[in-house]
Structures are given as structure tokens and as C-alpha cells.
Amino acid sequence: MYKITKAEMLADKIFLMDVEAPRVAKNCEPGQFIIVKAGEKGERIPLTICDYDREAGTITIVFQTVGASTEKMASLKAGDYFDDFVGPLGLPSEFIHEDIEELKKKKILFVAGGVGTAPVYPQVKWMHEHGIDVDVIVGAKTKDMLILEEEMKAVAGNLYVTTDDGSYARKGMVTEVIKDLVNNQGKTYDVCVAIGPLIMMKFVALLTKELNIPTVVSLNPIMVDGTGMCGACRVTVGSEVKFACVDGPEFDGHLVNFDEAMKRQQTYKTAEGRAMLKAVEGDTHHGGCGNCGGDE
């Protein structure tokens, strides 16, 4: 059993929890994820590691309620337990293997969408801890859906916040901000890391391809085991089929077949469930975790 030491609501439908998992905390790196299961009959839910405290032996997760399992998780309080919590899974972000001095010379742009801000955070924090200032764009559907702004401000070089409806900071999609920075503010980037809903990553990748900025995206297909055993998480990258749980979750955004990935995410959504989700998700749609598959 894995104790929840902290549980708070960051925004409507978005929750943060700290969970005691010393083995995971000891070995995890930015870019990796865990699988959590609540209750004996619970589903195995993959979530990106949002932060970790090696000394306290805790992992921070941030999740959005989109269906039965995440709803169930949201009902847990500090002091409650998860039945299972396994990780770290997947490969760490590639940059942690890079030469720090080389990395310092690079201009890096992070683009976070909605709950995707959570997985971007540990990467930006890692950069900050290694003395690297990076630009960060955080997009949310609306002001109330914006998360981790203060935390991000503390570790980002420049932080650009945007809301789709203009209720806070800039107005417009993250792609608008990228265009503005590159076209109007004379910024250049050597690499872009984009994490958010598939539909957002798709459009960021299309844009950065035009702008010639190599781009890394973090995929979140349906998973079961997370160890390479089931193949549920297969995605097409370039001409190859990859298992996101062991070969990823981060891939070259210019090579990912996003349309296929979006379709595959719908596998367990019945037409009825889809309709319900649309109604329930309503305006949280863009702030999503990437599972909605975007506008259909």
C-alpha cells in the first residue's frame, strides 16, 4: 500500500497528490511516469511524474478527472492509500544524458498545455537546477484551469502564460505564442519540448516543423502494464511501430503519427461515453490531459 501524504485540488477537476513510493523516488528522472491503481478492482492508470523528493521518498502526481478511475482517485484524501504504485516507467528525457555545457549553449522552449503543465514542470526544474534558463509557454483553456503558475515562475527563465479565452494573461492558443516569440520578438530555438493534449502537440509539431525547430513530445496512449508486455501503447513514429511505455513516452514530434494516436485513444470510448465526456468536460476540454483526442 502506498500512502498519500498530500492531496489538494489545484483547479476544477485537477488534483495534486504526494505519494510515498521510496523505490520510485530514488531512481526516477524527468520524463518518466508511474502507474497507479486505486482499489482491488481498480484500473492501472499511467501518470507522469510531476515532482519527486528523494529524501522524503515521495512522488508528486497531478491528474485531471476524465473518467471513472480518475474520479475514484480524486476522492482519496491525505492519509489514504493507493493499492499499487509502480515506476519509474519509460525512458527519461534525452537531455539528462547530454553534456551540460553543450546543453547550456542551446536555446530551449517548453510548451505546456493544460494538465500537461505538470509533466513539463520537473523538466524545467531540472534545467533550472543545472543552471539553464529556458523559455516556457503555459496554455490553459481559461484562468481557473491554470495550474502550477507560481512553481513554474520560480524555475523558468521566461514564462509566457496564455488562456484560450483571454481571461488571464495573453489570449489565444500556445501556437499563437510560439509564432509571436519567433516572428515578432526575434527569438530562436534549438529545441522545443511540447506536452499537452494530443491535438495541441500535433499543432505545435506542425508549426515547429515549419519553423525548423526540432521538437520532442510526450505521448499518452492507452496502457495496461507499462513494461512492454501488452502492446496497447503502440504508436507509429516515422516508419516504425514503437511501444510508448518502453521506447518513450517522449518521441520526435515531427515523426509521430498523431492522427493514428488520437484514434487509438478512443478505443474504449463508446459513442455514448464520448457524448457524456464532452458534456462533462465542457470547457476543460483544451486544458485536458490529452485523452479527449481533441475536437472531433
Binding site: 508486455m229 501488452c230 502492446g231 496497447a232 503502440r234 507509429t236 511501430v241 478512443q266
Partner: peptide, 22 residues
């Protein structure tokens, strides 16, 4: 030996194609 094989034929990533393991 838990790593499943696929055939590598067109359409194999369609929704509704599963490995026996999954």
C-alpha cells in the same frame, strides 16, 4: 518472455487490433 510480436501488416494499429497479451 512477455514481449508480444505483431505481423507488421498494413492496418495493424487500427482500433480493435490487440495482442493476445493485452
Amino acid at each position: 518472455a512477455g514481449l508480444p510480436k505483431f505481423m507488421g501488416i498494413p492496418g495493424e494499429n487500427a482500433n480493435g487490433v490487440f495482442s493476445a497479451n493485452e
